[in-house]
């Protein structure tokens, strides 16, 4: 298998990688860059768990070859907080750890205490937290990316438009109701 040297931007960082011709973008993200937030649910472009933004468009990364992403800009779930257009430059970006230290801070910054945006979460991530758009969490990364892509191109979608934008992302836990509500809240 011939190898290819590619350069791409992933979550705002320039990455270089040498990949075989048949490696998918999904495999490269998960196994070469160790960005495991993007999930592998079917490897056939059918479940949407591996959805990432490729130059701003949501794609099933299992259906894209890594070499096709040469020169592209990729956003994965790990980069969502960073990529929120209305949050650029804000302090505290990326400090997403729920763990705090120091005697005065005990417990009070835990994720369970808050409905506020405390970790620089993107609005869509925060809405999923607030409205329980999450159960097992396996479809969540792809779902968030598809939702983010929708809101980027259509900031005020109707309920029908939300459902339509998420139809390629399968969820077996939530029944979709709270996911749709979360997208509405984030809009």
């Amino acid at each position: 298998m011939s190898q290819h040297s590619i350069t791409l931007t992933v979550n705002g960082t320039t990455e270089r990688a040498t990949v075989p011709s048949n490696m998918t973008l999904l495999t490269m993200l998960r196994e070469v860059l160790v960005l495991t937030g993007t999930k592998n649910g079917c490897a056939a472009g059918e479940c949407g768990a591996c959805t990432v933004l490729l130059n701003g468009e949501p794609v099933n990364s299992c259906m894209v070859l890594a070499v096709e992403a040469d020169g592209a800009e990729i956003v994965t779930v790990e980069g969502l907080a960073h990529s929120a257009p209305d949050k650029a430059g804000e302090a505290g970006r990326g400090h997403t750890s729920p763990v705090t230290t120091g005697e005065t801070g005990r417990g009070h910054t835990s994720p369970v205490t808050t409905g506020e945006d405390r970790w620089g979460l993107d609005a869509i991530q925060q809405a999923f937290v607030d409205l329980t758009g999450v159960q097992c969490g396996f479809c969540t990364p792809g779902m968030l990316i598809s939702a983010r892509a929708l809101l980027d191109r259509n900031p005020h979608p109707s309920e029908a438009e939300i459902k339509d934008a998420l139809r390629g992302n399968l969820c077996r836990c939530t029944g979709y109701t709270r996911i749709v509500e979360a997208v509405k809240q984030a809009a």
């Binding site: 998960r30 790990e78 994720p111 808050t114 991530q125 968030l144």
Partner: peptide, 22 residues
């Protein structure tokens, strides 16, 4: 109805599933 304790891990991609272990 407090928010889920695992929600932040799951929306940031930090939650580790078996296939994510290195």
């Amino acid at each position: 109805s407090i928010p889920r304790v695992d929600a932040v891990d799951k929306v940031t991609g930090a939650a580790k599933f078996a296939d994510d272990m290195q």
